[in-house]
């Protein structure tokens, strides 16, 4: 397999990432040229592009965290979320577009984790753009075969009594994990609970924080 490319790795073993102010690359030139041609031919406006970037920047794991915290506090909302996560997200005012979103809930004996083995499908309209590792060969290959080993790399050692369920997303159906509410959070406000919900806990590679 041609993926032993150590020459692309930094001394710490991570891939190099070009800085924004590095030498202009062929693909950056293509992006500029494509964008200019589309604008000149009237297919898109610079304002539409700027607004789209702003909309994507505004999407963040905080939206998902608010959804999870609501589900922890409101059993009726949780029922609606589990039945139709797209509708429940819209109910909270999150513009998730045509995305078909499926919520999968952890409990004392079940841990869910999400991947996309074919490409990089991710609930981006709820959580924002996916982290680099979600799109990596290593994660996509291994999480379906040895999820416990992958989760251990993320610092999540699950006891054998917990069943691990791995969900493989598609372009048309994306999953979000609803983590189990941590112990010791009785009486906390929805807002304080949301602050405990991490991005990785909604992908399944982490757990919510515990209250300080």
């Amino acid at each position: 397999m041609p993926h032993d490319h150590a020459e692309h790795l930094s001394p710490s073993g991570h891939p190099y990432r070009p800085d924004d102010d590095g030498p202009l690359s062929y693909w950056q030139v293509m992006e500029i040229a494509v964008r200019e041609l589309l604008v000149e031919k009237g297919h898109v406006t610079p304002e539409e592009i700027a607004a789209q970037i702003e909309a994507m920047d505004a999407r963040s794991p905080a939206q998902g965290a608010a959804l999870v915290a609501r589900a922890w506090c409101d059993p009726a909302f949780r029922d609606r979320l589990m039945a139709d996560a797209s509708a429940a997200s819209r109910e909270m005012g999150f513009d998730i577009g045509a995305l078909h979103l499926v919520a999968v809930a952890n409990d004392a004996v079940t841990h869910n984790v999400v991947t996309c083995t074919l490409c990089s499908c991710y609930p981006r309209n709820l959580l924002g753009l996916p982290p680099d590792w979600y799109k990596s060969r290593a994660y996509r290959s291994r999480v379906v075969r040895e999820p416990r080993a992958v989760l251990a790399e993320f610092g999540l050692d699950l006891p054998p009594s917990v069943r691990v369920r791995v969900h493989d997303s598609t372009a048309d159906m994306r999953y979000v994990v609803i983590p189990d509410r941590p112990a010791g959070t009785d009486g906390m406000s929805e807002e304080a609970l949301a602050a405990l919900v991490t991005r990785d806990s909604m992908i399944g590679t982490g757990l919510p924080r515990t209250p300080a």
Partner: peptide
């Protein structure tokens, strides 16, 4: 090739940008 599920691979690179 793009159907990566179950294939051999090393540890998950954790750097994010």
């Amino acid at each position: 090739w793009h159907d990566m599920g179950g294939g051999p691979a090393g540890s998950v690179p954790r750097a994010e940008h």
